[in-house]
Nucleic acid binder design. Structure first.
Length: 126
DNA sequence: ATTATGACTCCCA
DNA sequence: GTGGGAGCCATAA
């Protein structure tokens, strides 16, 4: 099995962090996507969190924040590394359907082309 | 108090 | 390309 018990901790200030995540997700243009890890790198590590630990755990923090995202957020535009959908089952199919409705194309492995659809962040918006 | 469970990514064989 | 391991806490019932 490639799955093992996931263990991770929350950021020092979960509310602050999730607000950062939501703020960024809100800015992702329609038809574009970003990965959990990429999104995490747009947020500076909280005080007391070594960069090494942050890079390891932040993507999961992003996922956790996304699981609690308020209605209206384009949460479907956040994908796992490699342009894959992380959600499984019906939720995953719903995410794919939403992205396809925005014009994104999935390959045979269920991945999107990050080179083509990837959003580089608010500073690269253009 | 204990138990179950979480929207991830990188690295190496 | 594939598959297993590391990372090592907070929250809800």
């Amino acid at each position: 099995m490639s799955t093992q018990k996931p263990r991770f901790f929350s950021p020092p200030d979960p509310h602050v962090f999730q607000a950062q995540v939501w703020r960024l997700v809100r800015q992702i243009p329609e038809g574009q996507v970003i990965t959990y890890g990429q999104l995490a790198r747009l947020i500076p590590p909280p005080d007391g969190v070594p960069l090494e630990s942050y890079q390891a755990m932040a993507p999961r923090w992003v996922g956790s924040a996304l699981s609690r995202c308020p209605p209206g957020l384009p949460w479907q535009r956040v994908l796992a590394a490699g342009g894959k959908i992380s959600l499984s089952g019906q939720a995953g199919q719903r995410q794919r359907a939403l992205l396809e409705a925005e014009g994104l194309a999935f390959d045979a492995r269920g991945r999107v082309d990050l080179e083509r659809y990837g959003w580089q962040g608010p500073n690269r918006d253009g």
